[in-house]
């Protein structure tokens, strides 16, 4: 890792939860045939079991699927189990539910209902990556490190900044429970020693001038070393000025601007800015 990042100011608490064992890592749990299978169907069932044990879950799923017309509970359960282990969660839930419907008195009904609940309520996952292999990633203004990165964001809107030696991309996305979001960021050439990023709750974009200095929001640009104080966009958009220092040298100044929690006002936004210094390789 060539990058040295100095966190000058601490920001708000990072929302990512400690990861539990995800459903795809739970061990395989196959059922033997419960109902009577024809010899032909039994052969396909056995082929599925053998493929699954041999580490070919997609082949196993294909064999199980060829038996779906029979509606056997064991087939439905095992297909759900395979789907879970390859992270096809919607299909897994579908077939667990079909299993319960096919076997209303299933002795493991409570267990299966619990599995369904855990899958449907699993945390949101965001995979953040892109085309510039030297880039680092900031998530909601916090440094995650080098790309790619995986986070478990709280439901809601989030911001990602991807900064490379000669690139910068800014994106926002929505996180939902039980969903995996792929935040893929293409290479976009950008140079400069300052980035002004902003949270999704700040719906301001564009450029403004203050005292002869041109600022750009959600962009990478160049400023001379020194201290800057400015209203973001204008005194009517922001309730207060933000302030940050741009040091001399090759470091990149990353400023993350957010609305102060609980202080969003109708006609202007009370803002808070955190600054971090990113040391770029030369």
């Amino acid at each position: 890792m060539k990058w040295i990042v100095a966190c000058v100011l601490a920001g708000t608490t990072f929302a990512a939860a400690a990861p539990d064992v995800p459903p795809y890592q739970w061990p395989a749990k196959r059922k033997p045939p419960i109902e009577k299978y024809s010899v032909e169907a039994l052969t396909k069932f056995v082929d599925a079991v053998i493929a699954d044990k041999a580490g070919s879950p997609y082949d196993a799923a294909s064999h199980y699927r060829s038996l779906l017309d029979d509606g056997h509970a064991s087939t439905l359960y095992n297909l759900a189990d395979v789907s879970r282990r390859v992270e096809h969660y919607p299909q897994a839930v579908e077939f667990y539910k079909k299993y319960l419907a096919a076997l209303p008195d299933a002795p493991d009904r409570k267990d299966v209902e619990r599995i369904i609940e855990l899958i449907e309520k699993r945390p949101s996952v965001a995979v953040i990556d892109g085309e510039d292999p030297d880039a680092v990633i900031f998530f909601d203004g916090k440094l995650l490190g080098s790309s790619p990165a995986i986070v478990m964001p709280s439901p809601g809107r989030h911001t990602v900044d991807r900064i490379g030696p000669t690139s910068y991309v800014h994106k926002s996305f929505s996180a939902f429970l039980a969903h995996t979001e792929h935040v893929a960021m293409r290479y976009e050439e950008a140079e400069g020693n300052v980035i002004l990023s902003a949270s999704p709750t700040m719906n301001l974009v564009g450029t403004w001038e203050d005292g002869g200095t041109k600022f750009q929001l959600r962009a990478r640009f160049t400023l001379a070393p020194g201290r800057y104080e400015t209203f973001v966009k204008s005194a009517t958009d922001a309730c207060n000025k933000i302030a940050f220092d741009v040091p001399a040298g090759d470091d990149l100044t990353y400023v993350y601007i957010d609305v102060k929690p609980g202080e969003d006002k109708r006609f202007c936004k009370p803002l808070i800015a955190t600054r971090q210094t990113v040391r770029l390789p030369r």
């Binding site: 879950p57 390859v86 990556d129 792929h182």
Partner: peptide, 8 residues
């Protein structure tokens, strides 16, 4: 990891 999809 065989099979799993939505990430590297």
């Amino acid at each position: 990891e065989p099979g799993s999809r939505p990430r590297c």
